[in-house]
Simulated assay, not measured.
Amino acid sequence: MVAVVELTEGPGTGGAYAKAALGLLPGRRRDDALPDVELVRRGVTVDRDHLARYDRVCGLRLTDALPATYPHVLAFPLAMRLMSAPGFPLPMIGLVHVSNRITVLRPIDAGVRLDLTVRAAGLRDHPRGRQFDMLATASADGVQVWRGVSTYLRKTSSGPGPDAPDPLPAAGSVWRLGPRVGTEYAAVSGDRNPIHTSRLGARLFGFPRPIAHGMWTKARCLAALEGRLPSAYTVEVAFKQPILLPSTVRFTSSPANAGCEFTVHGKRPHLTGTITPG
């Protein structure tokens, strides 16, 4: 049975990576299963100045409607608290965000109070290690209006190599991403993983320079599709090769069934996604 833990104030993210680093020390005991805990925070309000900063960083229009990716930012501190807790079965540092699915059940106005829930589920084997899902929901006036699923992978083997390089697609929009994309998104999202903000931190995990946040890339894709999004939809993405910063990539989209497909591509695909109405 899942234990519900209600938080009266939002947990910060500032010390989470420090706690996670301590968890890498030899001898740290880890549980074999995910915690049967659901964290809840009720009555969360949106800081409109923060929302405006988030919109600018991600290239979104400044409106009173929350972007589909914004509740993920609100729920992220709860997810960090779970993943950095003593005994969590996989160390938080080194986790790879491999996919994300968000369902917007109805438009969310920035003036509503939201009840957030977060829990971890589905710990399972993967050809390259072990993975699990972080499940999040947002409700307004007792009605669920948003839900998200973030899948994280802990690699324990190398697995197959990356896809063969391809030239940039001939069509689509060219994005030139500056070196501060990672630090600017970290400041508005609370996700201060050093692989996005520090050349040294990136090198410790095998990257020659910082990489863009996957959720920034997803939000930037939705910004490119603004005006074409239905009022209720599911947007699902797979994070492929990381985007090194600075970088030049190309965004493409095309109709698919009643929705659309989209990609962010460099020499290799960085992100693939679909939008399904309803």
Rank of each mutant, 00 (worst) to 15 (best):
V73P: 05
R119M: 02
P35D: 04
L22Q: 08
D109L: 13
R101D: 11
R30G: 04
P26L: 10
P77D: 01
H97E: 06
R113Q: 09
M83Q: 12
A79K: 07
V40Y: 02
I102D: 05
A52R: 15
D49K: 10
D109Y: 11
P86G: 10
C58K: 03
P26Y: 05
G23Y: 03
P107G: 03
D32F: 07
A75V: 07
A120D: 04
V40G: 02
L105Y: 07
Y17I: 15
L25T: 00
Y70S: 05
A33N: 11
R61C: 10
L90D: 10
R30Q: 02
H72F: 04
V104A: 08
R81Q: 14
R30W: 05
L60Q: 09
T45N: 09
H97K: 05
G111M: 06
L39V: 09
G59T: 01
P11N: 12
T63I: 08
L60P: 07
G59M: 08
R53C: 05
I108M: 08
L25E: 04
G43F: 00
A110K: 07
T117E: 03
P11D: 08
T63C: 09
H50Y: 01
H50C: 06
G12N: 11
N100F: 06
S84K: 05
P77K: 02
P91G: 13
L22I: 10
G15E: 15
T45W: 11
N100A: 14
R106W: 04
F88C: 07
R41D: 02
R42E: 03
L34Q: 08
A52Y: 07
P77M: 06
P91E: 12
L22C: 12
D55V: 10
A18P: 03
R56Q: 12
Y70H: 04
L90P: 09
F88I: 07
